[in-house]
């Protein structure tokens, strides 16, 4: 893997962010299985799409900036896009589950 050539000042925070982001995404997705009601389940994946994705994107910004030796910020576009779009899907699903008969 190419990741070994990353300098230490970027590798340590990036590693911590990757671990935290992976765990948050895992717990959020685990909620899909552990919660018994759809109305409770709809809250769980928001964890992965807010802070989980945010941590991994921040790690990606750190590593690619350190490898290119200049600030690389185009990962922020994905962050903006996910923040703008994931609430739309959640709201549509919430309204759909309210209007559909339960069963």
């Amino acid at each position: 893997m190419n990741a070994m050539s990353v300098p230490l000042w970027a590798a340590l925070p990036a590693a911590a962010l990757l671990v935290v982001g992976g765990l948050l995404t895992l717990v959020g997705s685990l909620g899909l299985l552990r919660l018994h009601d759809f109305h409770a389940r709809i809250h769980a994946p928001t964890m992965g799409s807010t802070l989980g994705a945010g941590c991994i994107l921040l790690a990606s910004i750190l590593v690619s900036s350190a490898l290119a030796q200049r600030p690389v910020v185009h990962e922020l576009l994905i962050a903006v896009f996910v923040v703008l779009t994931s609430p739309v899907t959640a709201m549509l699903l919430m309204r759909a589950s309210l209007y559909r008969p339960r069963g």
């Binding site: 990757l18 671990v19 992976g22 895992l26 685990l30």
Partner: peptide, 18 residues
């Protein structure tokens, strides 16, 4: 340093289980 590759493997495993 081998910290970052291990963190990458760990994150990959977590997200795959997710």
């Amino acid at each position: 340093n081998h910290v970052l590759p291990w963190a990458v493997y760990f994150a990959l495993m977590c997200v795959s289980v997710a």
